[in-house]
């Protein structure tokens, strides 16, 4: 069997291919959001799709997050499979009521009469000096809400294939794409035709410490693991991929092997996803631990504009490595 060669593409292109393929495959699928058509998407993800697929399937919306997210919910209820792009998760707050009070409640509140097969995509995270109002990481907030599935594709493969799985899910799925990943290049294996949206993945195996992370922090964490390997510390890196429902089995299995955990999350620490992961470990694998759980999160400040301050506020390979080192080789 001759395998097709892997192609080298960007994360952005993987997202674009996913949207295009989904729209071509199913007449019920369409994309709507701010600047997705004529502008080509704020992060150029949907560039060229309006010209190819037309105005009915690629819909520019007014700056009315609540109305077009709610319209996505209504369209999903009435038989369509909308992909709604909220330009960035910072603007999702303007549609939070629709997401939380309608998308997440209607199936249960209606006694199972209606499903909401909606996909919401949004950019998340910091790193481009966009300052406080454009640098939030809100995926952890949304992971609080029953009824939603929360995805954080970190790899080219997940960016290319998670969307189809999300569209096949009868429930509202929110996909968070980290802004620092769009330009990332990587190989896409044409033999892979799809991915699951249920499981975490081990991105680097190791025996000494587990580093749990997702999204934009994955590559910082892998860089930290590389540094640690140079020091003789073998870190296992788990990419959560799915933030709700959490694949706790994968976390526990790793923790049981390494007995030490660092959780890396670009969200703030207080009341966070990292807190949830830590508590699940405490609940389910407390006696497997040889050391306290550590977290590397964003500093608890609105993300500042100045580059040095912004970088100081975010998790970095050095801070991740230091946290892991401190667990494996505590200072005497």
């Amino acid at each position: 069997m001759s395998a097709a060669p892997a192609t080298r593409i960007t994360y952005r292109e993987a997202c674009r291919q996913a949207i295009r393929a989904a729209i071509l495959a199913d007449p019920r699928v369409f994309l709507m959001g701010e600047d997705v058509g004529r502008y080509g998407g704020c992060y150029a993800v949907s560039k060229g799709l309006l010209e190819e697929l037309g105005e009915a399937r690629i819909r520019d919306t007014p700056l009315s997050e609540s109305a077009f997210v709610g319209a996505g919910i209504g369209a999903a209820i009435a038989g369509m499979r909308p992909i709604v792009e909220v330009m960035t998760c910072n603007f999702s707050l303007l549609a939070l009521d629709q997401i939380m009070n309608n998308a997440a409640t209607i199936p249960h509140m209606s006694g199972g009469q209606f499903a909401v097969p909606l996909v919401l995509r949004m950019a998340t995270g910091a790193g481009r000096q966009l300052a406080a109002q454009h640098s939030h990481s809100l995926e952890g907030w949304f992971a609080h809400i029953p009824g939603l599935r929360i995805l954080a594709p970190a790899t080219i493969e997940d960016a290319r294939h998670m969307l189809a799985a999300a569209l096949a899910d009868p429930n509202p799925v929110l996909i968070f794409e980290h802004i620092m990943l769009y330009n990332m290049e990587g190989e896409l294996d044409p033999a892979v035709q799809g991915v699951d949206i249920a499981k975490a993945r081990i991105r680097r195996p190791g025996r000494d410490v587990t580093l749990v992370t997702y999204g934009g922090s994955l590559f910082k964490t892998l860089a930290a693991a590389e540094t640690l390997a140079g020091e003789g510390i073998e870190a296992e890196v788990i990419d959560l991929r799915v933030l709700r429902p959490l694949d706790t089995a994968a976390i526990m299995a790793s923790v049981t092997r390494t007995r030490r955990v660092v959780i890396v999350d670009e969200g703030w620490r207080s009341g966070s996803l990292s807190a949830e992961v830590a508590m699940r470990i405490v609940e389910e694998a407390f006696f497997e631990l040889d050391a306290p759980i550590r977290r590397v999160c964003s500093r608890e400040v609105p993300i500042p504009y100045a580059a040095h301050l912004e970088q100081a506020a975010l998790p970095q390979p050095e801070t991740i490595a230091a946290a892991a080192r401190g667990l494996v080789r505590p200072a005497p």
Binding site: F68, G70, G74, A75, A78, P82, D97, N102
Partner: peptide, 25 residues
């Protein structure tokens, strides 16, 4: 009959989506 919505105004965007879906189908 698509609810029954207890957030004032929150049914309006839903109605848009239902109408859009009807038209697209």
């Amino acid at each position: 009959f698509l609810g029954g919505n207890a957030i004032v105004g929150a049914g309006m965007p839903l109605a848009l989506g239902v109408a859009l879906a009807d038209r697209m189908q």
